[in-house]
């Protein structure tokens, strides 16, 4: 069964386009010639302060999300606002920031140059957004990695003519894609090429299958402005102190308690062996606390674990 086409256009090099997607619609970003990176921003259409967040998405799906990944909004909203339902290539990046005028000026001596920030800002201006509203981008078709020293790198773009990604909107969104303006970086193989964008209706059951995923279940900790202590968006630029401010931090003051745990000779021997590894702490109490919570994470925590099991064996 084919998706029903609603809209399509071709973005020429140096340009971008914002489109409104209703919940359940699908945005396709497609290679026209191949080898082209697409930068991408995504906003709640009815509240632009909620937008896609690379960091939460990295936490949940890693540095190179592909088919099946959700696109998460920033805390405190913290919810999936779209789903990457199709990715014919599987080479995306949410590690690198968007290129900007400054980078070409500072790194190349090119102060007037196509760049993703300015392209994105100009496309988003159609919807009243300012350059400050451009957020960290989802870089579709961008091939990146991290070297053994921990430094990121950009590798040759692998996208072929006709490769595409499809993003299913889980709420009404403004989706803004642009043809990455980096022609003097490896991002798009040193040549800017057009990209096609198209809006389709989702297939029957497609939206429901995403919304029924465990990660998509609603939590009271996914907050919206109705619970904010400051509900209005600040409209002036100057920051001034609120003299009536009274701090209201959660669970403060943090109370600590002592807890005696009885261990047998054999258990103490195990604990002392763990201390000898030098990995988990230097005292019995430190190591026992580290072990307990590490064990808990391994056994019971939902979602991706955040520590290296192999390192614990070192």
């Amino acid at each position: 069964m084919e998706r029903e086409l609603v809209f399509e256009t071709v973005m020429e090099p140096g340009t971008g386009k914002g489109v409104e997607l209703r919940r359940g619609q699908v945005l396709r970003i497609e290679q026209v010639e191949g080898g082209q990176c697409a930068d991408f921003n995504l906003f709640n259409l009815h509240d632009y302060k909620e937008h896609f967040h690379t960091a939460r998405t990295r936490h949940m799906h890693g540095l190179m999300p592909s088919t099946g990944a959700l696109l998460w909004s920033a805390p405190p909203r913290d919810r999936p606002i779209a789903a990457l339902v199709t990715d014919t290539l599987g080479s995306n990046d949410i590690l690198y920031g968007r290129c900007s005028a400054f980078l070409y000026d500072y790194q190349y001596g090119l102060p007037v140059h196509t760049n993703c920030h300015d392209i994105q800002a100009e496309a988003q201006r159609e919807f009243g957004l300012t350059p400050d509203d451009v957020h960290d981008s989802f870089n579709f078709f961008m091939n990146t990695g991290i070297d053994p020293s921990g430094n990121p790198f950009i590798a040759p773009n692998l996208a072929r003519r006709g490769d595409y990604v499809e993003i299913l909107a889980l709420i009404d969104v403004l989706a803004v894609a642009n043809v990455c303006g980096a022609d003097v970086m490896a991002t798009s193989n040193f040549e800017l090429k057009p990209l096609r964008i198209a809006i389709y209706e989702s297939l029957p059951g497609e939206l429901e299958s995403q919304e029924s995923r465990p990660e998509a279940a609603a939590h009271v900790t996914q907050r919206d402005p109705s619970t904010f202590r400051v509900k209005q968006i600040k409209a002036d630029r100057e920051l001034t102190r609120d003299k009536s401010y009274v701090p209201a931090f959660t669970n403060v003051p943090i109370q600590r308690q002592e807890l005696d745990v009885q261990l047998s000779d054999a258990e103490i021997a195990r604990l002392d062996h763990l201390i000898e590894t030098g990995q988990l702490g230097s005292t019995r109490a430190e190591v026992l606390r580290y072990v307990f919570f590490s064990w808990w994470i391994e056994k019971f925590m939902q979602g991706p674990k955040h520590f290296d099991r192999e390192a614990a064996k070192a």
């Binding site: 943090i254 308690q257 002592e258 005696d260 000779d265 606390r289 808990w296």
Partner: peptide
């Protein structure tokens, strides 16, 4: 069998997780 006391210091949030798991 000998026993050895290890004195742990935990805060109320950690104890909440511990008690719930117990």
């Amino acid at each position: 069998m000998n026993t050895h006391d290890v004195n742990l210091r935990l805060n109320q949030q950690q104890l909440e997780l511990l008690d719930r798991t117990v």
